[in-house]
């Protein structure tokens, strides 16, 4: 029980997710909107595990989501012939998604984590694009034709269950992943990993001199962030969108969205990605409804203003404002 106060900051995060879930469940027409918002929150939260803590900007982050999507897709399309596996195919899909995104992150980590700053950002873009062209060029996993597997899902689970998976359970899983990512974030913040990474973010060389094994902790955070992305890809993309085409799962705009969400909410904070994801998702949704076609024109300058005037993000600002008050403990 002594541990509990340490994890108190999770309360507002979970509360937000529970409220979202309740709204979606009980209010007509809210489900698909919530599912989009949850995707953005989960994306931001998973991205934040590495970027927020280390300050390293992984521009190729979407590749890990892509790997997760492929993991699930491969499991479904290749194992559909083994009928006795049944729903285990989905479980295997999750495992494969984790394994594939972890493997890729280890490979990328070994190469790119030696680099810093802009060099790291560019190297990770290179990995993302290079990997996509390898899949298309060498015709791996059906190359550019990709895979479409609604029919396979129907065979495995039956039509009703497959439909429920696509439109309901996949969203629940995204919610779980978002909550998982938040828990992991706080766990790291409260343990050695977090202290080491904070030191690293402030001054990597000084941290090294102090005897902190910088590389080890960087890799831990990197792999965690990547495997969460893999899970997210397996659910929000593969299960919710039963197809995979290489240009779509390596679309660099998703990385940018993750950056925007983290930045809006406050990079390196626990609550930031939730706030960022909600603000970003909601404003895009209502702009597309009330001003169809002008979302980006409005969004781009707003982001510029935010970067210049509020570089700490919304939660960063709240944190500074609530310092010394009772709320302080909840906003991390």
């Amino acid at each position: 029980m002594k541990q509990l106060p340490k994890y108190l900051p999770l309360a507002p995060v979970f509360a937000a997710y529970v409220v979202m879930f309740l709204i979606a469940e009980n209010m007509e027409g809210m489900w698909q909107l919530m599912s989009m918002l949850l995707f953005y929150c989960a994306l931001g939260q998973a991205f934040n595990v590495f970027m927020g803590m280390t300050g390293y900007v992984d521009f190729g982050y979407v590749a890990f989501l892509g790997m997760g999507t492929y993991g699930m897709a491969l499991s479904i399309t290749r194992l559909v012939q083994y009928e006795f596996l049944g729903v285990w195919i989905i479980v295997i899909g999750f495992a494969l998604a984790m394994v594939m995104s972890t493997l890729l992150s280890m490979a990328v980590g070994a190469v790119a984590l030696r680099l810093r700053g802009a060099y790291f950002a560019i190297a990770t873009i290179g990995v993302n694009e290079g990997f996509r062209f390898l899949i298309e060029g060498a015709r791996i996993w059906n190359g550019s034709e990709g895979m479409i597997f609604t029919a396979d899902l129907n065979t495995i689970l039956g039509r009703e269950a497959a439909a429920a998976l696509c439109t309901y359970w996949a969203d629940i899983m995204v919610l779980v992943i978002a909550a998982l990512a938040a828990s992991v974030t706080l766990f790291y913040m409260r343990t050695k990993v977090g202290y080491a990474l904070t030191a690293l973010r402030e001054d990597e060389d000084a941290a090294k001199v102090m005897g902190i094994n910088v590389t080890k902790f960087k890799i831990i955070a990197f792999i965690t962030s990547a495997s969460l992305a893999g899970l997210l890809g397996a659910t929000a993309w593969a299960l919710k969108t039963p197809y995979v085409f290489p240009p779509e799962v390596f679309e660099i705009h998703y990385t940018i969205e993750a950056i925007i969400i983290a930045m809006l909410g406050g990079a390196g904070t626990l609550l930031g990605p939730v706030v960022g994801g909600l603000v970003y998702g909601l404003s895009k949704y209502y702009l597309s409804i009330f001003l169809p076609g002008f979302q980006l024109l409005i969004f781009a300058p707003v982001i510029l203003v935010i970067i210049v005037l509020f570089p700490e993000g919304i939660v960063g600002m709240l944190k500074a404002r609530t310092k010394g008050t009772g709320v302080e403990r909840f906003i991390v």
Binding site: R114, A123, G126, E129, G130, F133, G137, A138, R139
Partner: peptide, 21 residues
């Protein structure tokens, strides 16, 4: 059995990584 054009792109990013390293 490959698409050479996509592979030229792949090659360019491999070169990018190798040089960065």
């Amino acid at each position: 059995g490959v698409e050479p054009f996509a592979l030229t792109r792949f090659l360019s990013f491999v070169i990018l990584l190798v040089i960065l390293l």
